[in-house]
Write a protein that binds this DNA or RNA. Structure first.
Length: 438
RNA sequence: CGGGGUGUAGCGCAGCCUGGUAGCGCACUUGCUUUGGGAGCAAGGGGUCCCCAGUUCGAAUCUGGGCACCCCGACCA
């Protein structure tokens, strides 16, 4: 992409409404614009990151044997009456009436809908287990939306739903999702810590929150130091094998949010205790037969009895992760994207647009990096050097290739790592080799 | 939902107390000069001063009522 053609409205000054760093940078880097309280448009730069995150989540769901489908944003109130949640959910649920005076709602979650889909189609234990997910926009009419997309009313969420015949199967599915979450967040360059959680309005008794560590996180977390260096299962993870040992390991040491922490246990840990700040980006629940009983989602067991299925649900805040990653990875100058979620693989800065040698060198780098699939962003604008440096630092691409007349006198360009700030002079060919190896 | 605050050019703000028809910085346009970390000079363009009533010869400014947004708290992915 050429920056001269890209729709990238960056801001030099901080918008007054943005309080936290991710919100400020998302506005300044031209990623989002607020539409109304807690509701945002995603501009091209922001959408690229959102799609990258979505892609990683999708890959790890698929790898764990979860199948993607897509449920609507608007649901009928009827199924929520069946589960009993229509009255329980309160004003957070956006209720809508259609032209025939039918009661509808903009879904805050999808347990009812997926249960309805399941019960219409599945009759036998032979069809279990099943693990389904979708990535869809949700709406919760928060009393007080804030912090940009971190705490918006409309948000993109991946939610999975599992159906098993018995508790043993449900537990194994839960473990599978637990491990896939460890992998998902780790692939985004995040340290995620699973913590025992309350099951909230969904109900149930087996539940973990996944919090990523960020200095500016919303809540305080306490954990044993060693959790931070635990290994995350690699690409060779085999989900056909019960992941219980991995779950056992990750839940063996103390970890708790400020709401649930236990001062006595922390005292015992002494030097081993880490107090940090975290942002919740995932939540997994086992809730058994709560919905299957209420909504009559039953299968025939091997002995011919109809039994309600064991269910769980597993959420990842996809749009929230965009902000969460920025909270975890930035400096005073702007965002520092981890490579797997970066909107572009590298930036090319032409310090003297219009200079023949600068132009041809940049064009050559641009076309070669493009065909290598690195998806570069080429700043070909007729702007001053300082503007280009500042903009590139703000939008946080992992690599910056700086091409200027001074270096080219010796046939050299400069490559800078956004994360470390390290700069190296090398030939354009050496830059290509280096970036293609990344 | 309790408490507080703010709505004036794309962004950040001043003007309001003490009424006289709107200004500053950045951004934008044009020209010249500049050119390796958010340039300089000059000339321009852009505003229903959130909305509706009221007071007044006259309202961004005063009064009343709405709406929107933000912050603290309670609540939450």
């Amino acid at each position: 992409m050429r920056m001269s053609e890209f729709f990238l409205p960056t801001l030099k000054e901080d918008p007054s409404e943005a309080q936290i760093v991710s919100h400020r940078f998302m506005l300044r880097a031209g990623m989002i614009r607020q539409s109304s309280a807690g509701i945002y448009s995603w501009l091209p730069m922001g959408l690229r990151v959102l799609k990258k995150i979505e892609g990683i989540v999708r890959q790890e769901q698929d790898r764990a044997g979860c199948q993607e489908l897509l449920m609507p944003t608007i649901q009928s109130a009827d199924i929520w009456r069946e589960s009993g949640r229509y009255d329980d959910y309160g004003k957070e649920m956006l209720r809508i009436t259609d032209r025939h005076d039918r009661e509808m709602l903009y879904g805050p979650t999808n347990e009812e809908l997926i249960t309805e889909i399941f019960r219409e189609s599945v009759r036998s234990y032979k069809d279990l287990p099943k693990l389904l997910y979708h990535i869809q926009w949700k709406f919760r009419d928060e009393v007080r939306p804030r912090f940009g997309v971190m705490r918006g009313r409309e948000f993109l969420m991946k939610d999975s739903y599992s159906f098993d015949l018995d508790f043993a199967g449900a537990k194994q599915t839960y473990n599978k999702m637990f491990v896939s979450y460890l992998r998902t967040f780790s692939r985004m360059g995040l340290k995620a810590i699973p913590m025992a959680a309350d099951s909230g309005p969904i109900g149930g008794d087996m539940s973990h929150e996944f919090l990523i560590l960020a200095d500016t996180g919303e809540s305080e977390v306490f954990c044993h130091r060693d959790i931070l260096s635990f290994d995350v299962p690699g690409d060779d993870v085999d989900y056909r094998i019960d992941q219980q040992p991995v779950v056992d390991k990750w839940t063996s040491l103390y970890a708790a949010t400020d709401e649930k922490h236990n001062a006595a246990r922390e005292e015992e840990l002494g030097e081993e205790l880490v107090a940090a700040r975290g942002i919740e980006v995932g939540h997994i629940f086992y809730f058994g037969t709560k919905y299957s009983k209420a909504m009559n989602a039953v299968v025939a067991s091997p002995d011919g009895q109809e039994i309600p299925v064991e269910m769980g649900s597993y959420g990842v805040g996809v749009s929230r992760l965009v902000a969460g990653i920025i909270e975890a990875s930035h400096d005073d100058d702007g965002i520092i994207w981890p490579e797997p979620v970066a909107p572009f693989g590298a930036g090319i800065i032409n310090l003297r647009a219009g200079d023949a040698l600068c132009d041809t060198t940049c064009e050559d780098l641009y076309s070669k990096l493009s065909s290598a699939g690195l998806d570069p962003l080429y700043d070909d604008r007729d702007e001053r050097a300082g503007v280009k440096f500042a903009n590139m630092d703000l939008i946080g691409l992992p690599w910056q290739v700086v091409v200027g007349p001074r270096g080219l006198e010796n046939g050299m360009v400069e490559i800078k790592s956004r994360a470390t700030g390290d700069k190296q002079e090398m030939t354009p060919d050496a830059v290509l080799n280096k970036l293609m190896a990344v």
